[in-house]
Design a protein around this nucleic acid. Structure first.
Lengths: 158, 158
DNA sequence: TCGCTACTATTGAGTACGCAAATAACTCTA
DNA sequence: TAGAGTTATTTGCGTACTCAATAGTAGCGA
């Protein structure tokens, strides 16, 4: 008799695996299109978008790190690229000389506008298979995972 | 007057952004732990797991490609690594000499067993913030994204 | 004002991929 | 059975990250 089921798994693991697959499937196609059409990474786009909404179109690197969920070095390198393209430039901070702002240039804003329409359309196309209620449901569920990793600490602190 | 909202976005985009964040947050911690404790990538683990469940603990590379959602080249390189560790070995196919099987070795199975317990526990810990119904809901929603990218084609074909 | 710790950002080294092209083997058609 | 087209896998090359270590700055207490 052969023990077929060697490793048992749980509901959590099922959810995790589906998250991995959903992510891979989604970003592969969206990244490919965004990159082919506009020469931007998903994260490039995300950064440009955040900057466009920030006061004075500028942000500290640390804050970008939080928003797009990259490591500090990831952000520096990403911004290096955008800087080479002239889409972002560096700005200094008078009150704290450690920080260097990422500032969205006019070219950056133009590029963002150019890319946004088709990109958002493609995103919506991918998510068109959902009803509107499913979509908000999905968003809130996923937000629990992304919003505060330190939820465990909260239990203790509270 | 300054136009604050330069770029408008949709419900689909919100869902997409939360997917990105949820994925990044989740795999960062789980990957770090799995890698530190057992020297395995999430995808390494996933591959070992699939192999352990396959008949004769062997699979074609093409099929692994589908299951873990990597490109063919990604799979070859991932298996290269596992092979170097002695966790997987190559097997040939008599009926089709193009295919080379990935075969889980005894060492590979042992490694998987060793890693599985703590890894699954960590996954469950991450997903513990959800109720059981939320968890299944999340899983089914995400499955729509991962299960068939060719859903668009189906409309035409059907 | 000296040090101490905490924070911001960058750099060096390494890795896990992806894409496109190449190779080899299979299959089908005429 | 020759050829064309398809499929399975690998390889070259490039890239978008990560981690660990570093440097410069800030702010604090003694």
């Amino acid at each position: 008799m052969s023990r077929q089921v060697l490793i048992e798994q749980s509901v959590g693991v099922d959810a995790f695996v589906s998250l991995l697959r959903a992510h891979a499937a989604t970003i592969r196609q969206l990244n490919a299109k965004l990159s082919a059409d506009h020469g931007l990474t998903l994260n490039d786009f995300e950064v440009l978008l955040r900057l466009s909404r920030a006061p004075d179109r500028r942000m500290r690197r640390v804050d970008l790190t939080q928003e797009v969920f990259l490591t500090p070095s990831g952000i520096t390198r990403l911004l290096d690229g955008l800087e080479r393209l002239g889409l972002v430039e560096r700005g200094s901070c008078d009150s704290d000389r450690r920080v260097v702002y990422a500032v969205l240039t006019d070219a950056g804003l133009a590029k963002l506008r150019e890319a946004a329409t088709s990109h958002f359309a493609q995103v919506d196309e991918v998510f068109a298979r959902f009803e509107e209620t499913e979509l908000t449901e999905l968003t809130t569920l996923l937000s629990h995972l992304g919003d505060e990793v330190s939820a465990v600490d909260c239990d203790v602190a509270a």
